[in-house]
Design a protein around this nucleic acid. Sequence first.
DNA 1: AGATTCTACGAAAACGTTTTCGGCAATTCG
DNA 2: CGAATTGCCGAAAACGTTTTCGTAGAATCT
Lengths: 339, 339
Amino acid sequence: MAQKITLKKIAKDLKVSISTVSKALRDSHEISAETRDKIKEYAKEFNYKPNSIALSLKNQKTKKIGIIIPEIVHHFFATVISGVERVANEKGYQVIITLSGESFDKEVVNMEMLANGSIDGFIMSLSKETMEKQDFHHLREVANQGMPIVMFDRVSNDIPCDKVIIDDVAAGHAAAEFLLRKGKKKLGIISTVDYVNVGRLRSQGFKEALQQRGFEVEDYQYLKIEDIDHCENDIENFVVNNEFDALVAVNELFAVTASKALQKHGKSIPEDVAIVAFTDGILSKYASPTLTTIGQKGEEMGGIAAAKLIEKLESKDHENESYETVIVKTSLIERESTP
Amino acid sequence: MAQKITLKKIAKDLKVSISTVSKALRDSHEISAETRDKIKEYAKEFNYKPNSIALSLKNQKTKKIGIIIPEIVHHFFATVISGVERVANEKGYQVIITLSGESFDKEVVNMEMLANGSIDGFIMSLSKETMEKQDFHHLREVANQGMPIVMFDRVSNDIPCDKVIIDDVAAGHAAAEFLLRKGKKKLGIISTVDYVNVGRLRSQGFKEALQQRGFEVEDYQYLKIEDIDHCENDIENFVVNNEFDALVAVNELFAVTASKALQKHGKSIPEDVAIVAFTDGILSKYASPTLTTIGQKGEEMGGIAAAKLIEKLESKDHENESYETVIVKTSLIERESTP
DNA sequence: AGATTCTACGAAAACGTTTTCGGCAATTCG
DNA sequence: CGAATTGCCGAAAACGTTTTCGTAGAATCT
């Protein structure tokens, strides 16, 4: 229960002033070698570490960055955090995490809490509800107060800030193209409802790839999932009531669910139906068969987002207000679910 | 770029003193209704929010709790964080996360960083390296400075603090007992090296269950995995070179790897070999066949840990130094991998 | 010796709060 | 009418730092 030691206590014990202690510990030339060594020795003995709250107040910088994400139990978001944490730590920053739980209100509340001096800048991905409402006043308010924001994955074009995304259209295109080159003729896609950007954009790329190859809209089958937690019946109905030799799913959960439904009804994968999933996570690696996926590189996205944010934080504040959108390349990882 | 508004600015603009503004906003009876309303209106218009850093410094409380975990891309840890975040937010606390990456040094560094006033208390699970070294000086130091710690999952008996664990011995016992009741005779277990507590304890419970039923040590097969990232060959060799009709794996990764190896070699699950896994995560739910698991209830553990920490934080500091170890019950979730 | 420059330290302000205390004026009481 | 009470507000301290400025004494220069 040794109380936390402060400059004041050291000063009192050593009968010098607070400023002398501070200077000595920072190797100021103003302090004689003798006094300096005495102070340093004492500080080390009692394990003095400057109080970071006091420093934050004085410097008007917290050396903390705030993350707001919808959920942490999604592998993709966990990898992003991992990436953010890695580069943040390298540069002496700490990471505060809050979860919106896909709720607009929680997103707003958390943002306001963090904006009151707790952090220097934001890294965030919008909640589903926010995407649906298209209400970004909380972002705008924070940005107006001069606090930098970097958005990733689920971003909004309405907010001027740095962004890190994957090219979902290109990725959807690549998935379809990959299957077409394997000689597949009748493709299907399982996507999300349209206000989820990633689902819409991936579907769009998928569609474009087919059209470039001369397919018509009626040549492929489309399923939009509303509720990700209760998608099994929908997916099972979809795969038994339609004919296709290849399937794209905009996340690995849909993919593995479809895979199991297909196998349950006697189809073999990839011979009868090939599958390409998005979001390379743990499921793709361990499903039976393992899934060919388009990887999102969450770790890399998180790292880039953190680097861009810190760059903004450490440049002179008032300068050129230019924002950049980094597009992280996806990678297609071939596994057993495609021939 | 509207600068952040402070009490001082409000005071200046309204030509009153800082203390008057502070009191007015906190509904002090010392301030006349007229002045109070004027100040409150002004504050609302400019969206004043008290600076949390200044409050932290004044109150010597940050209303933040720090989490140190080995990895965040493990589903179990993600669920724990989710639980911590939930109850912390309910009680007005924020959550700072740092990752040790299973490294002792990073754990020490992160702990020292957070201990310098950034947070009010710790919730943590030890890194593998720390478990191996059995070096807990960093925990002891922090605890001595009066900062409360709650450990979960990977804990140490050497440190006096609250703990939240599952009864791994009982869980291992339950897993074996469950299989024996299903009529299985030759059991095997895939575990980790012994310094990982959870692996050792679950194995111990498994062994005890068998002994109570009159089995001898040579009646079951044992595999200890050193490197979780390269366990496939070891597991495949294990399952083809041994005979058993049931298998327990101390995590779902081992379980699904074993399941696939068995199926590859023509065994069917659960008819030929039944499987019980630990750590109910996403893999267990979506593997083929789905896995019967012993769930760890990470969300619940996180919630309990946070509640206990906050309870300590908000009680009068100097009181009874009593510590509690909460044992969270595991639950056996039956799925397709057992008959 | 007198003027100047170093050397080595302390005082105080600042960051944004909250809170204790003191005080002035107006009102009530005896 | 003098004394006590009340209503309303401001000054200042405190939290722990860093940094600017001032200064006393010693050393150096002329």
